[in-house]
Amino acid sequence: MSRLANTFEALNQAGRKALVPFITVGDPYPEFTVPMMHAMVEAGVDVIELGVPFSDPMADGPVIQRASERALAHKMSLRRTLGVAMEFRRTNQHTPVVLMGYLNPIEAMGYEEFANAAARAEIDGVLTVDLPPEEGEHCAALLKARDIDPIFLLAPNSSAERIQKMDAVGSGYLYYVSLKGVTGAGHLDIDNVKAKLEQLRANTRLPVAIGFGVKDAITAKTIADLGDGVVVGSALISKIEANLDNPEQAKQEIIELLAAMRHAMDNGV
């Protein structure tokens, strides 16, 4: 059983939901990321999504775009991201790490070399935004052969047929994008998410993490009640952006926000 499957299974048995933070690797500078990851674990997160910076992040809103630009200015790359993950793993054996990014850096490295390098870095899951299952079966097979979960996105307009397809090709969890739009957008509609989750549950047995539009403890709690996990990204990165002259302050504010989310998810607001 993969580290991701174990994590969701254990949470499920404890009646708890996964808190999944997303940060862009190397933002605001490369050495920031590993201590941030450990601090987030201490704040009670269950899985960490590491955003791999890309020059053309087509599905991301302005907050994550700028995080990518800051990281790229420090020459952050897919290879260096794997190095960051490896460093984290030296002192943490239990928290799953998922890479989230775009396909071209993987194309440039080569699928097989990437899969091998990800396995060496003990990466647990890979979510490639612009690689739908139609184009991604080869990549998914390479990852699965190395016990790495290929994770796929589902959207509000995904049909039952597509949900079944993701269920077949994906593993670990499915990432439900709770609104039509880019990351960091504001118009989260809880009733729509609730209705969609029923359709998702009817078509997959994989855990469902919900993201896009999670901003604070209240939205985290509300969303957590609907799915198996909550992904929070832009709200965290906004803290980094607001404190570029004082990254330790950013770290502190991120920890406080995640701790508040954890508390709300476990105990109610």
């Binding site: 890309f54 020059s55 053309d56 087509m58 790229l72 790359s77 897919l78 290879r79 775009y102 396909l103 071209n104 850096p105 993987i106 194309e107 440039a108 490295m109 612009d130």
Partner: peptide, 21 residues
């Protein structure tokens, strides 16, 4: 350039060794 994926298709691109455009 070299083959890669951008804007929805695989084609020749101007990208660096890390796949950044």
């Amino acid at each position: 350039g070299r083959p890669g994926v951008l804007h929805g298709n695989r084609t020749y691109l101007m990208a660096d060794d890390d796949g950044e455009i």
